[in-house]
Measured scan of single mutants.
Amino acid sequence: MPVRRGHVAPQNTFLDTIIRKFEGQSRKFIIANARVENCAVIYCNDGFCELCGYSRAEVMQRPCTCDFLHGPRTQRRAAAQIAQALLGAEERKVEIAFYRKDGSCFLCLVDVVPVKNEDGAVIMFILNFEVVMEKDMVGSPAHDTNHRGPPTSWLAPGRAKTFRLKLPALLALTARESSVRSGGAGGAGAPGAVVVDVDLTPAAPSSESLALDEVTAMDNHVAGLGPAEERRALVGPGSPPRSAPGQLPSPRAHSLNPDASGSSCSLARTRSRESCASVRRASSADDIEAMRAGVLPPPPRHASTGAMHPLRSGLLNSTSDSDLVRYRTISKIPQITLNFVDLKGDPFLASPTSDREIIAPKIKERTHNVTEKVTQVLSLGADVLPEYKLQAPRIHRWTILHYSPFKAVWDWLILLLVIYTAVFTPYSAAFLLKETEEGPPATECGYACQPLAVVDLIVDIMFIVDILINFRTTYVNANEEVVSHPGRIAVHYFKGWFLIDMVAAIPFDLLI
């Protein structure tokens, strides 16, 4: 008679799926529990143990900040960024110097990925580790590398530091407007667009060049630039800015003055950032001319202004700041037409079709709590990747769950009947059967004279019903998954307890 339990259901295979997918890609990662103190490590794979030199037993239950890997060259700011990422709910990448158990130093890129439950609360953290440099290539500990984003994938490793954006290309926007319009339909740009040429040739750093990471940081200074100062900065030398009595002219307006920039070969870094931020506020060169004239017309309804409409929906549905990093990277690809469009465009503009998908598509409701890094690593669709929660398995109709209350009560009843059979069957065979043979035949009273025979008949009927119930009862397979398919249940029961239950259900007393 089957006594099969499996009270692990309803099970959740999400954690096993993450481990299996990460292991298949030869990654070095740990999984931490966000619900406990210090976000203790609950799993670390073999790749991480080989990377740091510690065994799994030495890593388990330690804080996922990996303070046991810190050393003299470990930056405090990087460690603080990892700790801050564990307090938030967004994906974050941090470069930090770690030390192995043998004392060797290596520069590592740590990717902190939160995993949320159905309520939107962070319950786990996945920390992925990628070695960037070994100890002989690690720089000085005073050099802070965590304020910069990861290198873009479309640049060669040897040319990542030679990417320079020439400031004269930004200063000569109005001069290039006529050349853009003359391109017409034969050019790649839309009317009114501004073409910015980027020099990728390796050259020595000069005062006129600005690194790509500095251009990325310009967006942080746009908020500090007032509207009046932006307007004066875009007017140009024809209309000098008016300053109040006793007030000095704005240095932001002076930063885009061609006369002032041409007199000296070098520009201050602050002026460069502010000038680029001011130019980015204009949607095209037409807006710059309109600002000089004193009238700013409404933005025209053409394809170039609607190019950012799908980007707005993608940004609203993005799951991490990696989408913004990807957008900034692609927006700086050289030799393309940049349409400086305000994100607050007309909502009635139709979304044009684009061959290049900048932001990841909208994630469906079932995966809105899973970050983009987890979705990318697992390579699963929205119909396959579940949320991290207890999910009731989908069972067929008329199927009994093996952990249901009805099955528990039924098993206790069958257990009592088995005990009765084990006690009274030998007793009936030894004593009652002998008395029946010696006594007179009682054929007239039937079952009324033999109450134990009636009980034995009921017990046999219950055993037959138990066999039928076992054909529709779920079970737990070797992978700790609840199986509810009727065919698989029948095959599993035939290979197991079916023969024993059938022999126990045969009414031998009635056959004798």
Rank of each mutant, 00 (worst) to 15 (best):
R301M: 07
P10F: 15
A97S: 11
Y54S: 01
I82T: 01
V384S: 04
A268D: 03
R252N: 05
H147T: 09
P298S: 13
L173S: 14
C44E: 01
R181Q: 07
V180T: 14
S322A: 09
G6H: 12
K93V: 08
V198L: 06
N128F: 06
A285L: 12
R92S: 13
T145R: 12
K28S: 09
G71S: 01
H302T: 06
D259N: 10
A282Y: 15
G294M: 04
K364A: 12
M137S: 14
D46L: 05
V131S: 12
L200K: 15
S207K: 11
L51D: 01
K135H: 13
S331W: 05
S272R: 08
S179M: 06
A78S: 15
E230N: 05
R35T: 09
A360P: 15
L170M: 11
R292Y: 14
P386M: 02
C276M: 07
I82H: 01
A121G: 13
P227V: 09
E91G: 09
N117W: 06
P298M: 06
S266M: 14
G149P: 09
N257K: 15
V115A: 05
V194D: 01
D16G: 13
G294Q: 13
T74W: 01
Q376V: 08
D67S: 09
V112G: 01
S261F: 12
K332E: 14
D16P: 15
P251L: 09
V196R: 01
D67E: 13
G120I: 03
G149N: 07
A217W: 08
A32S: 06
H147V: 11
F106N: 01
T319N: 09
E58M: 06
P297F: 14
V370N: 04
A57I: 07
L167P: 15
P205C: 06
L170H: 15
V341L: 06
A80N: 04
L311N: 15
S243D: 13
L316Y: 07
E130D: 08
D67Q: 15
E230G: 06
R280A: 14
A79F: 03
Q25C: 14
P10Q: 05
T319M: 07
A79T: 07
L69S: 01
A223Q: 05
R76E: 15
N339I: 01
P227T: 06
T329Y: 08
I42C: 02
G183Y: 11
L127P: 01
I19V: 08
S284T: 13
V196C: 05
G192Q: 12
V384N: 11
S322Q: 14
G345V: 05
S255D: 05
V41L: 04
D286R: 05
H368P: 06
D67V: 07
E372S: 15
E37R: 07
Q75S: 14
S322N: 15
S239G: 05
M60P: 01
D219F: 04
V59P: 01
A97R: 14
C39F: 07
V377I: 09
L87E: 14
E90K: 08
R181K: 13
I336W: 15
E214Q: 06
P334E: 15
G236T: 08
L316F: 07
R56T: 01
P245L: 11
R273C: 07
V222A: 15
L173M: 13
A9G: 15
H254L: 07
S379A: 05
E177C: 05
A97Q: 15
A277S: 14
D355M: 14
R35S: 15
G238Q: 07
R35H: 15
V384Y: 06
R20P: 01
S178R: 15
V194L: 01
S320V: 14
Y54D: 01
I363Q: 14
P237D: 05
G139M: 14
D321H: 06
C39I: 12
G262H: 15
C39D: 04
F48T: 01
P245F: 04
S209G: 13
D286H: 15
F340M: 15
H221D: 05
T371G: 07
C276E: 10
M124D: 01
E230A: 09
D16S: 15
D199P: 15
S275A: 07
R4D: 13
G314K: 09
R148Q: 07
N257A: 06
V295I: 14
Y54F: 14
F129M: 05
A160Y: 11
Q61S: 12
R312P: 14
L200Y: 15
R77M: 14
S304R: 07
A307P: 12
K362W: 08
G345F: 04
R159K: 14
V115P: 01
L15A: 07
I19E: 01
P114M: 01
H368L: 14
H221R: 12
N33T: 09
I288F: 14
S178I: 01
A193S: 07
L127M: 11
A172E: 12
L212F: 06
P157T: 13
D102R: 01
G6K: 07
I82D: 01
F22P: 02
C39E: 01
H7Q: 10
L155M: 06
V325E: 10
V94K: 01
L51R: 01
S318F: 09
A382H: 12
S278Y: 09
N12H: 15
N369K: 15
E177L: 06
V131L: 12
V341Q: 05
D346Y: 05
D219N: 15
P237I: 08
G224Q: 05
D136E: 06
T216W: 05
I19M: 06
H309K: 05
P2T: 06
A193M: 15
R35F: 15
D199E: 08
A34C: 06
S266T: 15
K101Q: 01
G103Q: 07
L343T: 15
P249R: 08
L212A: 12
G238R: 13
L15K: 01
K116F: 12
V194K: 01
P347A: 11
T371R: 07
S275T: 06
R164Q: 06
E91C: 13
S182F: 05
S322F: 12
V195L: 05
T337R: 12
R301K: 08
K101I: 01
L167Q: 15
S140C: 07
N146C: 15
R271V: 05
D286V: 12
S26G: 14
R159S: 08
R269W: 07
P202T: 06
A253Y: 10
V122D: 06
E214R: 08
N117L: 07
D323N: 13
K166T: 06
P72R: 05
G306P: 14
H70M: 11
T337A: 15
S104Y: 03
D16M: 07
M124C: 05
